[in-house]
Amino acid sequence: MEVDRTLEELKKHNLYRKLKTIERAEGVYVYINGKRFVNFSSNDYLSLAFDKRLAENHKKCLERWGSGSGAARLVTGNFTVHEELEKKLAKMKKTEAALLFTCGYMANLGILSSLLGNGDAIFSDELNHASLIDGCRLSKAKVFIYKHRDVDHLEELLKTNRSEFKTAAIVTDSVFSMDGDIAPLDKLLKLAEDYNTYLIVDDAHATGVIGNSSFDFFDIKPTERTIIMGTLGKAIGTFGAFVASTSRMKEFFVNRARTFIFTTAIPPHIACMTIKNLQEIKSRMNKLQENIELLSKLTGIKSQTAIFPLIVGDSGRTLQLSEKLLEKGFIIPAIRPPTVPEGTARLRITVAAGHTVKDIKNLSDALKTLI
């Protein structure tokens, strides 16, 4: 069978994946087969997801709103708490409005497939997240790939091709999920203005990490042509996603984004919990920044974000290092193709606000011993 051959090929090339079963989590510490590990691979950057101090607030949300929404937002699944959260998220992103989606993948598919189509163009960074890539494909627009963070190459593509298409968009992650580097949003926004395109930004790994918004990092404000996707399941510590833009754009997505229209709304108690968690962000960002600076100093891996890529290259060697670190009590999975380009297999280390100085020093010592 094709399935059997595929699985054997994956094993042969050290690309086979399997699930780790976690029995329980206590902040940055997780338990597998009764043993405690320090988790350096989570996207719970502000350590909100497993914070027991917040449990009482979350319990009240569940008691008030129940466990599910019961319908899509356009049917009977639109609750006051959804709209309250959307207003807070719009304020956070400094936009007119925001619209909740079930997850970041669905949000990106919905944005791109509803806003762009045949006869339109998308200019996409070559290292964009899979959800953006799939959204580009689903849109059926003509896609131009520009070299990673290369503004000159992007402008060359815009100059040569933009005039042939009715509607166009520049699409980028703000913080790239595998490398932890930051897109030059100030320059991208200028190109969007100069060439009359939308600027669609995936802020999943930036929200609560380099600011409330990646636009804050560059001290620029969103404009009418910017569309920001953010997630709730990473630094904010709950579940779901949202799109922040103009009120008119929100109205458009409510009516045209199939991944919003045809799916059950996120449970209202999740929206309630998210509102509670938003109150914790400011103080925890400061602690996260301290940990980012410490990990960078001790390991020599430079990053301005919570993502630290340790490029190994060979998939087999990367797997071995990951397993050795597991033996020493650290969870850092091997990231291999096709998630990253061939020859760039890596350990993707992520730091969180909940890591202690001791956790970070112990990891640094382990890495120095192994490498």
Rank of each mutant, 00 (worst) to 15 (best):
S174H: 00
S174L: 04
S174M: 00
V175F: 10
F176C: 04
F176M: 03
M178Y: 05
M178R: 09
D179G: 10
D179S: 15
D181C: 08
I182L: 14
I182N: 06
A183R: 02
P184D: 12
L185P: 05
D186Q: 13
K187P: 00
L188G: 03
K190I: 01
L191Q: 01
L191F: 01
A192Y: 00
A192E: 01
E193N: 01
D194F: 06
D194K: 15
D194A: 13
Y195C: 07
N196H: 14
N196P: 05
Y198M: 08
Y198V: 02
Y198C: 05
Y198T: 02
L199I: 07
L199Q: 08
L199F: 05
L199N: 08
I200V: 15
I200H: 03
D202H: 03
D202P: 07
D202S: 15
D203K: 04
H205R: 10
H205E: 14
H205S: 11
T207I: 11
V209G: 12
I210S: 08
G211F: 09
G211A: 07
G211I: 09
S213Q: 04
S214R: 00
F215N: 09
D216N: 12
D216W: 03
F217H: 10
F218Y: 14
D219I: 00
D219K: 14
K221I: 05
K221A: 09
P222F: 01
P222R: 11
T223I: 08
R225I: 01
R225L: 03
I227S: 07
I228F: 01
M229R: 12
M229G: 02
T231F: 03
L232D: 09
K234M: 07
A235N: 04
A235R: 05
I236T: 11
I236C: 01
G237A: 10
G237P: 09
G237V: 11
G237I: 10
T238I: 13
G240K: 13
A241L: 09
V243E: 02
A244I: 09
S245E: 02
S247P: 00
R248P: 00
R248H: 03
M249R: 10
M249K: 11
K250F: 04
E251Q: 13
E251N: 13
F252V: 02
N255I: 00
R256E: 15
R256P: 00
T259C: 03
F260R: 06
I261L: 07
F262W: 13
F262E: 14
F262H: 14
T263A: 12
T264H: 11
T264N: 14
T264M: 06
A265E: 02
P267N: 04
P267L: 05
P267W: 02
P267Y: 02
P268M: 08
P268H: 07
H269V: 08
I270E: 07
A271V: 04
A271E: 03
C272Q: 08
M273E: 14
I275W: 11
I275P: 07
I275E: 13
K276Q: 15
N277T: 10
N277C: 06
Q279D: 15
Q279S: 14
E280A: 01
E280W: 06
E280V: 07
I281G: 06
K282C: 01
M285D: 02
N286R: 14
N286T: 15
K287S: 12
K287A: 13
K287G: 03
K287Q: 14
L288T: 08
L288K: 06
Q289F: 12
Q289P: 00
Q289C: 03
I292N: 12
I292R: 05
